[in-house]
Design a binder for these strands. Structure first.
Length: 569
RNA sequence: CGGGCUGUAGCGCAGCUUGGUAGCGCGCUUGCUUUGGGAGCAAGAAGUCGCCGGUUCGAAUCCGGCCAGCCCGACCA
């Protein structure tokens, strides 16, 4: 490609509303332009990178036996109603009506549709199957952000496995784990596999691949000493037990005027340390008011509450709902003697005695509470949010927490979808059994952004050779010098013939502009061709990542660079 | 959905308080000079001032409504 005829609209100034490095650099480098909130156009070099990312993913999924197909983005709403996910995904589902009065949705994922295809499987002899597509997804995210990292229309590689039993599923899951590991390595990103919540997918088990980045949206708990890593939505930790006094025979009510928070009660004369308080929250789970109890110094992890309760809709209760339920305002709530609503308690409250909690009377608390004796706990659950420094649940060493981008997510689905949609086969005994499914997703544009997040410097993007829009740029220093232009043209032509993706910067710009643009858009190798080098029969090779420069003889430069590119693809 | 902020030329911004010719930098066009790290001089082109309504002799500016975008939170395969 000749830069003089290419559409690569680089910007000198950073776009005003881009915060994340990948957002800023992809816009400034002429890779993408925003059309509306969460919707981006990919310009020519952006499209080239996307194509290379997709090619890598395709190779790796093909290598584990995937068969590529292509399903529609437009779905009948009825299929989604059959699995209950018009409700479960209501907040992100684009819905529309067609002119015949039919109801449709734009697919946010494709379990329903792949499973519908899988109803044509009839015998255990036909499985295992592994099907995938690379296709557009639509999710009406409430808050798109950070350029390509969270958008409303995007490309996803989604694969689905169908097996006769869980042993088959486990095998397909492990193969995907390995394929994803290879994909991220080839993309030039570090992706940490972590235990994750399955969220609205349901299913038994899931692993997220998290790319460490401040632009990420998830907190990942990991242990530097062993391999333990988990999304904070699911992470557990080992923390020391609190030693309690037995306390009095029954709770004692005492006035606490003005005390509204855990911290207030710590300060209050006659109050208690935070780890000796019971924090009482009220949530509405699928319409049912539920009390949620934690140790005073612990934070609720809402995803754990949702997962443990199986609720679809989880929200904090409104102040008026709380008062109607318990007769007091937040700040004076407690579960002692409460018998109406369900009471979910965090495991860290088990066996605790002599605790302090609200009295369900404004400005009053109870002390001397024995959890087992005084509170009718409906169910014990792990509900607390792990924080850095707590002990690893596997080895006890202090845990660390980092921000990460969810670059891929693989699920063991089980039979949720096959049962709902009737995807069954006859087994060897002639029994009809639902197929055991897995689903495996990786976002194409999000991974483009993740690559940039992990591969940039103050000058711009530093693409790995594997996904660079062009592998080499030939920079013509002096366009009005015939010998320079001719030499650069020959190198450009011969690199192309050698199979290298090469761009020649033949614009009539000053050298500084060309160098800066080449570094901004992040081409891995630059060959600088100018009169100064040609005088000694050389051209200069610059390596974008290291800044290293070497003079190469013009006679061997093409084969040398072609070899360098091939080695690093 | 709650809070904060912003819409003025392709990009980045000023002007709005106090109503009266729509500006600056970069980029773009033409010419000359320049050319190994974002050149200089000169002459130009380009804007429904987000949209609708109101006040006024007159609105980018004041008032009302709406729309869009960004950030924080909530939310989120």
């Amino acid at each position: 490609m000749r830069w003089s005829h290419a559409f690569i609209p680089t910007l000198r100034d950073d776009p005003a509303d881009a915060e994340a490095a990948s957002h800023r650099l992809l816009v400034r480098g002429g890779y993408v332009r925003q059309l509306m909130s969460g919707v981006y156009s990919l310009l020519p070099i952006g499209h080239r990178v996307r194509s290379k990312v997709m090619a890598i993913i395709r190779e790796e999924i093909d290598a584990i036996g995937g068969q590529e197909l292509l399903l529609p983005a437009l779905h009948p709403r009825e299929i989604w109603e059959r699995t209950g996910r018009t409700e479960a995904m209501a907040d992100i589902l684009f819905t529309l009506n067609d002119l015949r009065g039919g109801a449709a949705v734009l697919g946010p994922t494709h379990e329903e549709i792949f499973t519908t295809i899988a109803t044509e499987l009839t015998s255990y002899k036909q499985v295992p199957q592994l099907w995938y597509q690379i296709q557009t997804k639509f999710r009406d995210e409430p808050r798109p952000k950070a350029g390509l990292l969270r958008v409303r229309e995007f490309t996803m590689k989604d694969s689905y496995s169908f097996d006769i039993d869980t042993a088959g599923l486990d095998l397909q899951f492990d193969r995907h784990f390995a394929a994803y590991t290879r994909i991220f390595a080839r993309l030039g990103v570090t992706a940490v596999p972590v235990e994750a919540s399955s969220g609205s997918m349901g299913g038994s088990d899931s692993v997220e691949f998290m790319v460490p980045s401040p632009a990420g949206e998830d907190d990942v708990v990991h242990c530097p000493a062993c391999d333990y890593a988990a999304n904070v939505e699911r992470a557990t930790s080992a923390i020391p037990a609190v030693e309690d006094d037995p306390g009095p025979d029954q709770p004692e009510r005492f006035p606490t005027p003005g005390v509204r928070t855990i911290a207030d009660l710590v300060e209050f004369e006659g109050g208690a340390a935070a780890d000796r308080q019971i924090k009482t929250l009220v949530y509405v789970l699928d319409g049912e008011a539920t009390m949620v109890l934690l140790r005073g110094d612990h934070e609720l992890q809402e995803q754990k509450l949702q997962d443990a309760s199986g609720a679809v809709e989880v929200r904090p209760a409104h102040p008026e709902e709380i008062r109607e339920l318990l007769g007091a305002g937040a700040g004076s709530l407690g579960a002692v003697g409460v018998s109406g609503p369900r009471i979910f308690a965090d495991l860290q409250l088990a066996e605790r005695t002599n605790m302090v909690t609200g009295a369900n009377l404004d400005d009053h608390h109870l002390r001397g509470v024995d959890v087992a004796r005084d509170i009718a706990v409906t169910e014990w659950m792990d509900l607390r949010t792990v924080v850095a420094g707590e002990g690893c649940p596997e080895c006890g060493e202090p845990l660390e927490v980092f921000r990460g981008i969810e670059a891929g997510h693989i699920f063991k689905l089980g039979t949720k979808f096959s049962e709902a949609l009737g995807a069954t086969v006859l087994d060897a005994d002639g029994e009809s059994v639902p197929l055991v499914m897995g689903s495996y997703g990786i976002g194409v544009e999000r991974n483009m952004a993740a690559v940039v997040e992990m591969n940039h410097d103050e000058r711009g993007i530093v693409w790995p050779v594997s996904v660079a829009p062009y592998e080499v740029v030939v920079t013509v220093v002096k366009m009005n010098d015939d010998d320079t232009v001719a030499a650069a043209d020959r190198i450009y032509e011969r690199l192309g013939e050698a199979g290298v993706d090469v761009l020649i910067d033949d614009r009539t710009e000053r050298p500084g502009v060309k160098f800066n643009d080449a570094e901004l858009i992040g081409i891995p190798y630059r060959l600088t061709v100018g009169p100064r080098g040609l005088a000694t029969g050389n051209v200069e090779l610059s390596v974008r990542r290291t800044g290293e420069r070497t003079e190469l003889p013009i006679g061997t430069v093409v084969e040398e660079v072609a070899r360098l590119v091939a080695e690093n693809r």
